[in-house]
Amino acid sequence: MPLIHLWTALPLAKLEVGHHFYWHIGNLRVHGQVFITTWFVMAILIAAAFAASRNIQRVPSGIQNLMEYALEFIRDLTKSQMGEHEYRAWVPFVGTLFLFIFVCNWSGALVPWKLIELPEGELAAPTNDINTTVALALLVSLAYFYAGLRKRGLKYFTKYIEPTPVLLPIAILEDFTKPLSLSFRLFGNILADELVVGVLVLLVPLFVPLPVMALGLFTSAIQALVFATLAATYIGEAMEGHGGEHEGAHS
């Protein structure tokens, strides 16, 4: 794959897009840097969850309070998208989506990964890699198909012809655009954040990139929220049937 090394001549920093630290497992090729940061993120999440639920008090404090706040936030989000009756079963999935993406994005922005030298490529947020976001988006697609089929059986497929069969192509197309837009939105936002910060650091290495970094933190959090909200919306929509108007044509 051809790469344009625009900035390699400069001594300060360099932008690396498209370099990967490949691992070979059998005859499969995987992106090692993604896995390293993913394991880091998973370790953080599991440790936080363990610390929060190890000694549950009626009056919460410390980490338990924080995680309870997060859980209540996720519950509200899911409830508002799926309704009072259905939301409980989907809280783990949507919640893990939110927490995972959130911690991934922020780890990319807050942890100075670039200090760790890899033979090739560099460590960054796992959501910076298209594989991760597509995997998450495909899981969301599977989840909403599963939810619709489980809730409504084969009648789920009547949604393709439900108000009129004329819209059949668009309805089918929607099933492809949903994961596409989900994955590209997340990937593009995170990559754009890191690139903008990278370019600014390249131009002015001190202080000037800080506001952009803060903005990056903000957009990262919003993107995690958007991803989780959309996943919950899609799942809720699939379960709800043709009752309401279709909200599906989001970008």
Partner: peptide, 10 residues
């Protein structure tokens, strides 16, 4: 805004 932003991101 995030939805509109994603159009630019595309």
């Amino acid at each position: 805004l995030a939805f509109m932003e994603s159009l630019t991101i595309y």
